[in-house]
Amino acid sequence: MPVAVSAPFDNAKPAAPPSQKLISSLETTPQNIDFIRKITLLSEDRAFCARRSASIDLLIFGIPVIDAHLGGGLSPCALHEFAARPGDSEHLACTTRLLVTLLAINRHLRGPVLWACSRADLYPPGLAIAGFDPARLIVAEMADAHIPAVMEEALRHRGLAAVIGETRRNPGLTLSRRLHLAAQTAGRPALLLRRFGTDDTPSAATTRWRIGPAVSPPPSDRLAALWLDPPRLHLDLIRCRGGMPASWTLTCHDDIPHPLSVAAPLADRPPAPRPATQFRRLA
């Protein structure tokens, strides 16, 4: 017996999506019913997300290029994963800087922020420099294995602006899916920081980022080597549901209204290394 499923796709066009046509020709075998159920759940999930996104302010970077690439900003009711770039230290200093900057920019995220971590190297005065009020921070130190569960528990409570968890490993597909669902139900972001970015096991995070430092512009003369330009970050969006991967280099400023800007891609590049042959010819 053929089944017709009218899936409430959020991006429903006047014409029926191709998957509907496919489903309508399916027989009601147990496998097919399972498939149909999955499709329906998925589309309901997307519709739910869309409804949420329409009513809740997005998590913006404050940079038109990035926000436009993300379709307005990051979804505030989803799991986002941030990791250090390969070869970076496990202290996640750049990632921390970017996250607290985001929390400071997005003033619609009010209330305290829970930071679950297994090592206590977070330095609140440094977070204050990035514009984030340390009084909003609640730090929960615990063993690494407990962090996803604590994040899920915290997402169930009202009153938090965001829940941040620092884990050593990837929590895996099941746990990240749970976190994503908890964030979706709670309507507030779950931000997962991973100490090691090399592990590419699947995850249910809506976006996955790799963040590392970028070299600041070269000193033009000897005097300029005695002071530091604003720090630069290198952002890789390696996975984005419904979007394309991308990379940016950002400059972090200390002024609060616009703390981030895209570094000019062409200016201030490090000089190209000279080919070694030149030296030989000179000799």
Binding site: A135, L137, I138, V139, E141, M142, H146, V150
Partner: peptide, 11 residues
């Protein structure tokens, strides 16, 4: 919760 080492807020 079991497994929690510390819960604090900075001042």
């Amino acid at each position: 919760r079991p497994g929690l080492h510390a819960l604090w807020r900075p001042r």
